[in-house]
Every structure is written in structure tokens, then in C-alpha cells.
Design a binder for these strands. Structure first.
Lengths: 225, 225
DNA sequence: TGCCAATATACACTCAATGCCAACTGGCGT
DNA sequence: ACGCCAGTTGGCATTGAGTGTATATTGGCA
């Protein structure tokens, strides 16, 4: 959201000033240059100076746009959190907390913008091997968890205390992250998004012991659950 | 573990050479100096040079002991993983995967060495605000998850595929981390370990929808705190 | 046009981290 | 005891991230 520049006509509600448009353009150029160089030369090999040069700005100026080199990899990307919060807001009577989160996961948009897709794959790769990148990812997930947990606690007053809300949210995001990792990393080519999501929802539902699996699934022995 | 001074008991199997003992002493001194300075002056303000000076070694030598400043905060700390693997190894017939992990969590040693306690609190604080530290924590948890997931898959052949094992393990560790965070962060002084663990086990069990909660839980009751 | 504020850049600096190299030290065979 | 070897140490220089500061440029606006 924050990163999408409107280079075409000014159809973004509030008409951006020339200054602001220029700024967005520079920001987009930095992201594009960063992705390009990271993919071509590797992360460590790509210095901030090179990125800045590729975007035709001074090295110092880079830090006016991004606080760190890693931040270049995490522009926006709050869709999942928003989906979760929406699902909680539209909670249905009788729906269990875990089921609410699962519903949010199911209704996620396929998230397949070409550029975003490239960025997402690149990000996954880098999270695996660059601790600094992993740090940012972790911090983001952590912040997301806290927001979702707070919303959950509010939606289920008297039923979920802070610890329970945190634990459930942590379990949910932990399961999503781990399952996604396995699902996406077996194949080199990006698999079809809907297949991924189906496997994801199923695995997470099982991990949380949720009862409402709409997509049918028969484990070897559904003993009691 | 590494920091234990010198128990008279000959419990430490292999007799360490003079060189090795000296090395361990230096390592311990670095950790102690690091904790001390981090607590007193803050993380960013404490430079590697200061730590090295406090431990009476050269700055360059520091990196012969720890690959980075953050690594100073994660010495050892594989007990939890070991407990999990043990629990899986000693799986009882009919026990569900989630219950196995919970049993491992329950049988964790109280883990309350005074120094380790201080370190743990410090670590939690720093994970919250220093991305680089968060990165290390994330990487460690990630590695732990993969080991546990592999063990689970082996213990439940034909019942858990790789995605399911990863999801369950991710849910488990995610729930533990999130719950622990809430449990430990309100207090300035480390709360009694057994209380923490009781709340932890309960919250995680509920998050995973496990059936075997030994500690009873009744929805509607204001969460036992 | 001309002033004000936001922005961009150059410059100098700190600190983490690495490579290189010379000095030292414990282990071990003679 | 002697001396060699390997592991350890630390000084020096270097790279790259990130910041503070002062100066220049540019857009917004009267």
C-alpha cells in the first residue's frame, strides 16, 4: 500500500504534491534497484552505495528512505495482518478463536503481483541465510502477533486472557510460517498459489486441532478430534 | 553449563586440557562482561571493544570466541530442544503428537540458574528492540523447529507428512515463545519458574487444542494467573 | 519574484566485522 | 631440557553500515 506509486494519472484519492510524487518515485526506484542487484549479485555483495548509485541518488540519501538495508525487503506487506483483523472483527457467533484465524487465512487474496511475488521469493531465500533479514522478518511477525492477539482478546472477553491470546496467536503464525516454509521451499519454481494455500490451511488447521476443517481431511485415526 | 565454575564432582566427563580450560574461562569472562555492560549501559552503547577490554582481551580476539556481538546472548540454550527430542523418543503408544510435545515441555528442568535467569530476561528485552538480536533468536528457533519436526515425522510415519510436522512444530514453538513473552515481560524480577511453567503449559495446551490438559481448565473462569 | 521549509548531498565520523601478519604459548616428541 | 608445531592472540588496516552536521537544491506558496 505505501509502496504502490501511482505513476499514471492522479487517481489516488488525495492528490499528491509534486514533491510527494517525486519522493514515491525515488522510493520505488530504490526498491527496484535493490531487488535487481540482490538477485544478480547477492545480498552481502550489494552495498547500499551501489543501490543508491543505481537509483541515482547519494548514498546518504538512501537512509532518508529506509532505515536500513534490510528494510528494503519489507515494503508494506501488512495484508495478512489486515485479513486476520478483519476476520476477527467479523467473528460469527459460536465460532472458536482458532476457527476465526483460519477463516482469515482462507480468505487471503492470492497475493501474486509479479513484482511482489519476486520480492516474496527473494525475501524467503534471504531470511534463510542472512540473520539481519531474519531479524526484520521476526520483528514484523512479532508486531503482527501482538496486534492480532490484542484483537482476539477484545473479541473474546472473559474467555481469553492475555497469555492464552498470545499463545494461540503465536501458534497460528508459527504454524503458518513453518508450513509455508516447507511448502514453498521444496520446489524451485513458485507453485500455484491456490494449491499452496489449500495445503497451508489444511496443515495449520490440523496443527491447531481445529474442528471446522471445511476442506475435508481424514487423518489415519481421527481419534476424538 | 559452559559457565559452571568448577563443581568438585567429576561430572564433566572429558578432562580438559590447560588450553581448553583457559579458553572456557575467557569465554565465560566475555559472557559475564557482556551481560554486565549490556545491563548497565545498554546494548547499542556497549561496543565490542569495551566488552573485550572488560574481559582483558584484545578486540580482535573477541571474534575468535563469538562470531558476532549478538551471539554473546545465546550461549548453549539447547535444553528445550533436547527435552523435546527426548519426549518424542519416549513416545507412548496412543499419544498424539501435540501431547508428546506438551509432555516434553512439562518435564523441562526449571532452568533457573541465577546467571541464566538474568541472561534470559536480558535476552527477552533485547529481542524486543534490537533487530539483530531478534534475528539470532529467530534463526535459533528455526533450527530447533526443523530438528523437532524431523524427529516427529520419524516417530509418526504415515501419519504426519513434512508439512504437517512443520506446522505442528511451528505452532508449538510459536505458542511457547509468545506465551513466555507475555508471562515474563510484565515483571521486572524473574517470577518463580514453576508458576511460569504451569501457566505456559496450560496456555500452549489450549492453543494447540490438546485434550490431555492435566491442569484443568474451564472456559468462563477468569484465567488462573 | 522571492521567501520558507522540505529534501538532497557532501563530509567526517563511529562501530561491527574481516583479512593479514607477527608474536606468544601450551602440547608433545626427542 | 630443548625445540618444533599448532592453536591462540592482538595490532593494524580495511570495508561497509549507519549517523550527525552543515550546506546546497528544490518545491510550495504568497
Amino acid at each position: 500500500m505505501t509502496t504502490q506509486p501511482r505513476p499514471a494519472a492522479g487517481l489516488d484519492g488525495p492528490p499528491l504534491s509534486l514533491r510527494e510524487r517525486k519522493r514515491q518515485r525515488t522510493r520505488a526506484a530504490l526498491i527496484a534497484a535493490g531487488i535487481e542487484l540482490f538477485e544478480r549479485d547477492g545480498y552481502e555483495e550489494t552495498t547500499v552505495a551501489k543501490i543508491a548509485a543505481a537509483a541515482d541518488i547519494g548514498t546518504r540519501t538512501f537512509f532518508g528512505y529506509f532505515a536500513s538495508k534490510e528494510e528494503l525487503l519489507f515494503p508494506g506487506a501488512d495484508d495478512r495482518v489486515a485479513a486476520g483483523l478483519d476476520a476477527i472483527r467479523s467473528r460469527r457467533p459460536g465460532e472458536r478463536p482458532a476457527d476465526v484465524l483460519l477463516r482469515g487465512l482462507r480468505t487471503l487474496p492470492p497475493d501474486d503481483d509479479d513484482l511482489v511475488g519476486r520480492l516474496a521469493m527473494l525475501r524467503l531465500k534471504l531470511i534463510r541465510k542472512v540473520p539481519a533479514v531474519a531479524g526484520h522478518a521476526f520483528a514484523a511477525q512479532y508486531a503482527a502477533q501482538r496486534r492480532i492477539a490484542a484483537a482476539l482478546m477484545e473479541a473474546y472477553p472473559g474467555e481469553l486472557d492475555d497469555v492464552a491470546a498470545a499463545a494461540l496467536t503465536g501458534a497460528f503464525t508459527g504454524a503458518v510460517a513453518a508450513a509455508l516454509d516447507v511448502l514453498l521451499f521444496g520446489a524451485d519454481a513458485p507453485p500455484p498459489p491456490d494449491v499452496v494455500r489449500a495445503g497451508l490451511v489444511d496443515a495449520v488447521a490440523r496443527a491447531l486441532g481445529a474442528h471446522d476443517r471445511s476442506e475435508v481431511w481424514k487423518p489415519g485415526t481421527p481419534a476424538g478430534q
